[in-house]
Simulated assay, not measured.
Amino acid sequence: MKIAVVGAAGMVGSRVIDEAASRGHDLVAVFRRTRSADLPPGVIAVEGDADDPDRMAALFGGADAIVAATRPAPGYEDGVVTTTTALLDAAAAAGIRILVVGGAGPLRNPGDPDRLVVDSPEYVPEQWRSIAAASSTQLDVCRAHDADWVYLSPPAVLEPGHRSGTYRRGTTTLLADADGTSRISAEDLAVAVVDELENPRQEKHFTVGQQDA
């Protein structure tokens, strides 16, 4: 499978590239500024602005799947609408399925299903609320678009760590342990991303979490 990864320099994008390359897939790594260092052998590095749908559509040509792993910088959360729309437009123009790695904000609170995670301070401290709200907006953009998309919401805590190769999968409710912990390593999130690309399921919005001990 040929996979184009947008946001290849980021925590998630870089690990998706490593995971997919380890499984023998062909990769196109899309960077805002071209770079090739630290990429697995055979990965093609290209330069492209995620906000430019024409450029993205040209880069996606010949791909079987797209992973959108972009993340707005602090203070630029409003840009998520422009970027997500451009990537969905490009995916639709190329006729390719796109997996958008978003945020936990639009998930439901496991202890209070009538409340979203973005409105749950126990999962989203005030300093993270802007980016969590942006992820809710991002999912709304996807839902309003006719591209072939799937949206992955990570758990509350996503950070570099150990690749166990296992995880739990859910749909639209945050996955949390009995003590309220909701997390996964970026490495295991990448495993879930590539699993979904290889064996797509029916859900348009899903989440994952660390495997129970």
Rank of each mutant, 00 (worst) to 15 (best):
R129V: 06
V5G: 09
A178G: 15
V100C: 13
R168H: 02
P40A: 05
A57Q: 12
A21M: 08
S120A: 11
D179E: 11
Y167V: 03
V81F: 15
S164A: 11
V67G: 08
T85A: 15
G111K: 07
S14H: 11
C142Q: 01
V150M: 09
V117C: 06
D54T: 05
R23E: 07
D119Y: 11
E187Q: 15
V12F: 06
D195Q: 08
R15H: 10
S136Y: 13
L39H: 05
S185Q: 10
D18T: 09
R115A: 03
V193N: 06
Q127A: 13
V16M: 12
G95F: 03
G24A: 01
V117M: 08
D18E: 15
L107H: 00
G161V: 10
S130W: 01
I3L: 02
V118H: 11
S120C: 12
P160R: 05
I44L: 07
K204G: 14
A133I: 12
I184E: 04
Y167S: 05
S130L: 09
E198F: 04
M1G: 14
G111S: 12
V46G: 05
R15K: 14
G7A: 04
T85L: 15
D179A: 12
E159R: 14
D195Y: 15
V43Q: 04
T34M: 07
A68Y: 14
I96T: 14
T207L: 02
V16R: 10
R168A: 01
A4R: 02
E122V: 00
I44T: 10
G10I: 13
Y76G: 01
L116F: 08
L197P: 09
A147Y: 15
F60R: 00
S22Q: 05
R23D: 11
A21D: 04
P110R: 04
V193Y: 13
V67Q: 04
I44Y: 00
M56V: 01
K2Q: 12
P121N: 12
A156F: 12
A57I: 05
V117Y: 14
L175P: 06
F206I: 08
R201Q: 00
T34A: 12
F206V: 04
E196G: 00
W149Y: 12
L197R: 04
A147H: 11
T171M: 14
I131L: 15
D212M: 01
I3W: 09
D114S: 04
R169D: 04
T85F: 11
F60I: 00
V124F: 13
D49W: 07
L139W: 10
E122M: 04
R115I: 03
D52W: 13
V193F: 13
T82E: 15
G102R: 05
G102S: 14
A134G: 13
D148R: 13
L174R: 07
D18N: 07
P72H: 14
E122Q: 03
R33T: 15
A69I: 11
L39S: 01
E198I: 06
K2C: 00
A58Y: 06
E203P: 00
R163K: 06
G10D: 10
P106R: 08
F206D: 10
R163C: 01
D51S: 14
K204M: 06
D146F: 04
E187C: 12
